[in-house]
Design a protein around this nucleic acid. Structure first.
Length: 403
RNA sequence: GCGUCGGUGGCGGAGUGGUCAAACGCACCUGGCUGUAAACCAGGCGCCCUUGUGGCUACGCAGGUUCGAAUCCUGCCCGGCGCA
């Protein structure tokens, strides 16, 4: 099913680093990389109508297999024409496998554990994971992930095959093999065990993908590109091993997932990229702190996705100058007549809204606050990626200028 | 004027003899958020003190009863309602 055009081509490389600028081609358009995929878990960017996606600089979005499976259901989306038609999405769509929900609804459930931890916490192990998962809604088995729906308690088993089948039904352009996102505080032995499972699941995912491809091609006229996921936690050995393994598989692209040590994401990415083939696009799952994005781009990552810009917006935080965080709930913004960022060209900033006004909307819980800030935050982060791309294009001479 | 009910922290509102610096909301202050269980969650919120099973001042005002009062009694001030 290779289309005439390659999925991905590198347009320019930064001679000083591993950074590269590229083009990711899908049936719904070309993504200019490095790029950020906006998160649209339930086929909607929260607080941002699709009419404003372009204004926010959105090139592509990420929807979620688990969430769409629960509602409105993969079959329904398929029968209504696929996710692009159903949600009137004009951009390419990347769907996540549901692997992350195994983590957030499983070991992370009810604990304040994120996939990125500070080494301090990891070291003291104060919240060390125990097998006692009080009330967790998901459980990893060797066959897949068993979920108890957080909406109605119904039980669902998401196997690698099921995840791929759902993603084909959704009609995503870019799909991801089911993987296990581990608890960053889990011991190494567990990381190894989980890694073996993720690799086994990848083989099953590839088989399923190849099995469903002909039917999907008939139905949609094209087939999605498959991402295999590199895991391995914070261990260099495991990360490299995983990257070598995934890089050799019959996948179209590579995603780097799992748990990280805050401030050390860059080295984890570094190890992985060293082992990966040059030709395939690389996606860093769930990472979106501006500093982390900048660092990962230098390490050769092409695409990102993160809830950070949209969630922070709904929580009243806007990116200020140089992508610093402005917590608009803080008293000091109540009389601040400055725009969020004087150098920003987004609609929110160009409309002339002051921090004081936006802070007022946030305090009053006006829904427009979420919209204005979401637009701004996405724009600001997309601008970072756009500038990175420009920098690479201007520094790097287009070597394999296949495009 | 008589009767009656009531006056609690910025606001609303519990409490009606000790375990009350006073539930719970709201407001306010601050922190967190990295493949979205998240327009969410957590902490603080009389004054002093670094701390605490710490000190001080507090439940309209002034007295009183009691080992002990936001809670009981008396008077006063203020408000709602009813009757004149």
């Amino acid at each position: 099913m290779p289309p005439r055009e390659p999925l991905f081509s590198v347009v320019a490389r930064d001679p000083q680093s591993r950074a590269r600028a590229g083009m990711l081609r899908t049936a719904h358009g070309i993504i200019e990389t490095p790029a950020l995929f906006a998160v649209a878990t339930k086929a909607s960017i929260k607080a941002l109508p699709v009419w404003l996606w372009e204004a926010a600089g959105v090139q592509a979005v990420v929807v979620n297999t688990y969430h769409l499976l629960l509602a409105p259901g993969a079959d329904r989306v398929a029968s209504l024409g696929g996710v692009h038609q159903f949600a009137r999405i004009p951009t390419p769509v990347f769907s996540d496998s549901g692997g992350f929900q195994a983590f957030s609804l499983g070991v992370a459930f009810g604990r304040s554990v994120s996939k990125v931890v500070r080494s301090q916490e990891a070291a003291d192990g104060s919240r060390a994971s125990s097998s006692a998962q009080n009330g967790a809604l998901s459980r990893i088995t060797n066959d897949g992930v068993q979920f108890r729906s957080h909406r109605d308690g119904s039980v669902h088993l998401l196997t690698p095959e099921a995840s791929i089948r759902v993603q084909h039904l959704l009609g995503s352009d870019l799909i991801v093999a089911l993987d296990e996102c581990t608890d960053p505080l889990a011991p190494r032995e567990y990381q190894e065990e989980a890694l073996a499972r993720t690799h086994r699941w990848l083989a099953q995912s590839i088989a399923a993908h190849q099995q469903f491809a002909p039917e999907t091609r008939r139905r949609l006229g094209w087939t999605p590109a498959l991402y295999g996921v590199v895991q391995g936690g914070r261990y260099e050995e495991l990360r490299r091993e995983s990257a070598r393994f995934v890089g050799k598989q019959e996948v179209d692209a590579i995603a780097i997932g799992g748990s990280f040590d805050a401030g050390d994401i860059q080295s984890a990415v570094h190890w992985v990229v060293e082992e990966l083939p040059e030709s395939k696009p690389r996606h860093l799952l769930g990472i979106g702190e501006p500093e982390d994005i900048r660092a990962a781009v230098r390490e050769g990552v092409d695409t990102f996705d993160c809830v950070q810009p949209t969630r922070l917006a709904r929580h009243g935080i806007a990116y200020g100058p140089n992508l610093t965080r402005l917590n608009l709930r803080n008293a000091r913004y109540r009389e601040d007549s400055a725009p969020l960022d004087p150098t920003c060209r987004c609609m929110t900033c160009r409309s002339g809204f002051s921090r004081a006004y936006l802070a007022h909307l946030v305090r009053e819980r006006e829904m427009a606050a979420a919209t204005y800030l979401t637009l701004h935050n996405l724009f600001a982060l997309n601008r970072l990626l756009r500038e990175e791309r420009q920098r690479i294009l201007s520094l790097g001479r287009s070597n394999d200028s296949a495009a």
